[in-house]
Design a protein around this nucleic acid. Structure first.
Lengths: 250, 250
DNA sequence: CAAGGTTATTGACAGTGTGACAATAAGTGT
DNA sequence: ACACTTATTGTCACACTGTCAATAACCTTG
């Protein structure tokens, strides 16, 4: 670092601006891709659904702020979820109170439990993303746009990385993983082909043994798999994107 | 908009933070992928190379700030270049003077002219990205990381969109486009295959006529092409990524 | 003008990946 | 043992890719 004196900025020289993080926390529940939304308790947009978020603290890294928000809102730690910055939104009018620039993040959480609506202050819920995509629900601020971008990134990333597995527990069956992909695009995938793609991908490895998958106890037991190393590209897509509702095959 | 009074934020309640945009402006010059860098004129990092950038103005959209910086630094307007937000960087120590959160953008410019080192205040230059990638040049602040991320995004986007054509003039030959891709990965592509991929892609269309390409006047004249519509995915990659320096084929 | 050189464009072909779908395996419940 | 369900493995036609050859169209030179 050079030794000359630093010409310190005078913060008063620059207009006040607040920096926040907003989170699109995704999970699969009831075979449906859902996002965590909170109900706003005050103006503006009082009563409307919004992405959870909060201010970035003075000495806090952006990623740390996002991880903290994730933990505060869901109890999920950074290790248990996949967390990635999306991009920033800073339209001058996006918050009527003052200039707020928000850094959006998205997260993939394994089977998040629906928030118990119990006597808590803020109401929160896991809402199917389709309800926002078809505009049945209108989010506060520019959060509809943010969520749309987050969904686009999530789906794109699911195509060419193993991130879909972060919706599952550490050990998962190929069918569980397939159901994640089916939920993400609301479609149906061929079990045989999906199996082949996972087996050929270098991003997954068969687990030594492990607990048998619980739940359905019908049909041939499936073997367990896990992610190999970090989320690198599996070479070719696990599943090519398909049209919306092709759940019916001849 | 709800009618209740807004609980106005008190800017003094939140720590001072500055928001800037930093730009990775790419272009192809001498068949080499280059990035525009400026020499810092003051501390910190005085004398070091840095990405051009500046403060976001009070009532300025982030994209507008990036477009303004691009214009100020290169004279190129938003229409002539491809401009996209990358992500934000906000480590608390990234600028020793105060908390600065920067929103990084990257741009693809058609044959940008090398800045004339003439008596201008700040020195600027089009530096081959390889010089930064191989760490021959160390950038100020966290700009090496930003540029690395921008390069990753640029190359990734070039694989599955027609963004590479934004390095060319509006009408271009397939060879010109191929040379862009060859420069981006410092590799060699088979002309026949590349031709086939472009012709099959729905992202390009043959131009009616147009000026014959200037420059080399040797060999069979090439037909001119242009981008069809916006930059959507061309279906399959124009060129799959290859190893660094495979320029020699038996 | 014909020959030779250079780039553009089109074809031919083998190898590989993909989607559709059939067949087999290995459990559960009756 | 039989019926049913899910997992896993195979088959096969077809599309896509990379390699490499052939042709086209222009420029320069003798």
């Amino acid at each position: 670092m050079p030794g000359s004196p630093l010409p310190a900025y005078n913060p008063r020289d620059y207009p006040p601006v607040a920096v926040t993080v907003d989170m699109a926390v995704f999970t699969i529940h009831d075979d449906t891709l859902r996002v965590l939304l909170v109900e706003r308790g005050e103006e503006p947009f009082k009563g409307a659904w919004a992405l959870p978020g909060g201010f970035v603290r003075p000495d806090e890294d952006l990623n740390a702020a996002a991880a903290r928000e994730l933990r505060e809102e869901t109890g999920v730690t950074e290790e248990d979820a996949y967390l990635e910055q999306l991009r920033s939104y800073g339209s001058p009018q996006r918050d009527p109170r003052m200039r707020v620039i928000t850094v959006a993040y998205w997260a993939a959480c394994p089977n998040l439990a629906p928030p118990t609506g119990g006597g808590d202050a803020a109401r929160a819920d896991l809402v199917p993303v389709s309800r926002v995509e078809d505009l049945s629900i209108d989010l506060a601020f520019d959060h509809t746009e943010i969520l749309g971008d987050a969904l686009e990134r999530l789906r794109s990333k699911m195509e060419y990385t193993a991130v879909g597995a972060r919706f599952c527990r550490p050990r998962f069956t190929i069918s569980e993983l397939r159901r994640v992909y089916e939920a993400a695009w609301n479609t149906t995938l061929d079990p045989g082909n999906f199996q082949r793609n996972v087996r050929r991908s270098s991003s997954f490895k068969k687990a030594r043994s492990g607990d048998p998958p619980r739940g359905h106890r019908v049909g041939r037991p499936a073997s367990l798999w896990s992610i190999r190393g970090e989320l690198s590209s599996p070479g070719r897509p696990l599943a090519t994107r398909r049209g919306p509702r092709a759940k019916n095959r001849g």
